[in-house]
Simulated assay, not measured.
Amino acid sequence: MTTTILSRRALIGAAAATFAMPSLIRAQEAEGFNRRNISSFAQQDWRDHFENLGTGAIVCDTVSRALHFWSADDEDYRVFPTSVPKTDDLTRRGYTRIVRKKEGPSWTPTASQMERFPEWRPMGPGPDNPLGTHALYFDWPAYLIHGTHDTRKIGRRSSDGCIGLFNETVEELYALVPVGTQVRLI
Rank of each mutant, 00 (worst) to 15 (best):
V183Q: 07
I145V: 12
E168D: 15
M123T: 09
A27I: 10
R157W: 06
R47K: 15
Q44D: 10
R92F: 10
A66F: 02
P122L: 03
W140S: 05
H149N: 15
T151V: 14
S23M: 15
D88E: 15
R97P: 02
R65F: 01
L176T: 00
F33D: 12
V179R: 02
R9C: 01
K153E: 14
E115N: 11
P22Q: 08
R100D: 13
E172C: 05
I58W: 15
P81N: 12
P141I: 12
E168P: 04
V183K: 09
G94F: 03
V170R: 03
G132Q: 04
I98G: 09
Y174M: 05
I98T: 02
F41Q: 09
A16G: 08
E119C: 05
T82L: 00
L67S: 03
Q43C: 06
V79I: 15
F117T: 08
R156C: 06
P105H: 02
L6I: 11
S106G: 07
H149T: 06
D76E: 14
W120T: 03
M123F: 07
A16E: 01
A10P: 00
G155P: 02
A142V: 03
F50R: 12
M123C: 10
H146V: 08
V179C: 03
N37Y: 06
H68L: 07
L173P: 09
R8I: 14
R78M: 12
E168K: 11
P125Q: 04
P125C: 02
L53T: 10
M1S: 14
T2F: 04
P122D: 12
T148S: 04
D139E: 08
W120H: 05
C162T: 04
D45S: 14
N34F: 14
D74S: 08
I38H: 07
I145W: 10
T91P: 07
V84C: 01
A57Y: 01
D139G: 01
R156G: 11
S71A: 03
I25C: 00
Y77E: 15
S106C: 00
E75L: 13
P125N: 09
T148L: 04
N129Q: 05
A175S: 14
R65T: 09
